[in-house]
Amino acid sequence: MTDTIAAMDKYLRKHESDMIYLLERLVNINSHSANVEGVNLVAAVLEATLRGMGFAVRRLANRYTGDNLVAENMARRQRGGGPLLVGHMDTVFPPEMGFDRMRREGNRIIGPGVSDMKGGLVVAIFAARALAAAGRNDLPIGFFFNADEEIGSPHSRGPIADEAKKSKFCMVMESSGKGGEVITGRKGRIIFDLTVAGKPSHAGHSPYPKPSAIVEMAHKIQGLEALNAPEEGISLNIGLVEGGVGPNTVAARCTARCETRFVDAQQGETVWKAIQELCAKPVLDGTSASLDIHMDRPPMVANDSILGLYELISDAAGEIGMEVSSVSLGGGSDANIVARENVPVVDGMGPAGDLFHTPEEFLETDSLVPQALLTAAAMLKGAERYS
């Protein structure tokens, strides 16, 4: 262990209680994606914290969600480059749910967004603090904390991509999972609305087969479900269906919100073409269908660039007495956005945790210091590799 790493380790162990204190401040503010005031309160705490560390902070206001934060230390402002650490401030828990306080049970910290992903925000901040405490203020560091990740980052994806392109590499601070895995791949995703139009009539006098939007939707759903190919990594799910006005009326309209996930861009193009072809061919005369993409995320494919960064992190882990492994997941994150820009990126650098999006969401307390040390050590090693 080098003197720099030893100094960072000492700093983090000494300040573990400060990490937990900051985490509690963030967790006890409800920051559901739709709670703009709450998200902005979290942003205010983080902005004050970062300014206190000497970072220049910009707030990117948005009329639909809370503000996004962009922060840079002096070295990044002067020279550019360095790593970009990305995390989100919003959660999936609405205020009325009543899950709004952090609590501790043994080695677990439980609360809304503790691991998805306010714990990751704390790890990122204290990794930068540890580097400064060890005398390495010369390393350029950037942060991007966004307000809308849980709804697909519709308003922050452009600014995230812009900041990523200014950076040598990127680490997304989502939870590392129970096993502490570094995430090197994530599936792409398309959420889409399927709308079927039929011809309304009295159910007692309608010709048969009826030009019912609901019946046509039933045929479409069967066709969409048949596109699932789990052995190839393709999934398709119909999550919400609405239509009709009553039992005595042939339905004129039916809608379905669906999603598909896929491993790489080519696979995504293939499955989307199949969806379009299916919806272009009505089974029942007098019906028609249309598609509208609600949200999409590109896949994060474990290419040489991503695997090279993972190897760097694995080497850094070895230097501090840790072991890491890599994993590819079906869920998406802002790492997908960075990967599309061909910037080296990994995810899962936050503390270990599980049961995300549930009232039992937790992180493991004893993973806070190691993950902050690993993040700091990776930034240190990245400064050599990506200079």
Rank of each mutant, 00 (worst) to 15 (best):
F262T: 06
K210T: 02
P298A: 05
P299K: 04
V215D: 13
S212L: 01
P211T: 02
M295F: 15
I306A: 05
A274F: 11
V250L: 08
S206I: 04
G246Y: 15
Q266G: 11
T255E: 13
A218N: 06
T249I: 03
V241N: 09
A265W: 14
C258A: 06
A229C: 12
V301L: 03
L291D: 06
G308N: 09
P282D: 12
P209S: 05
L312R: 02
G246S: 11
P299G: 13
S325C: 04
F262Y: 10
E311C: 10
V324T: 12
P230H: 10
I221V: 09
P247E: 11
V283F: 05
K273D: 10
E259G: 12
P207I: 01
I214S: 02
M300D: 00
W272K: 07
A229V: 03
V250F: 05
I313C: 11
A251F: 08
G223W: 03
L227A: 04
H294C: 14
Q267Y: 12
P211K: 00
Q266I: 11
S314Y: 12
E216G: 03
L278Q: 04
D315F: 15
Y208S: 02
N248W: 07
V283E: 13
G243H: 10
E311K: 14
L278C: 05
S305Q: 00
L227V: 01
M322C: 07
G204E: 05
V245C: 09
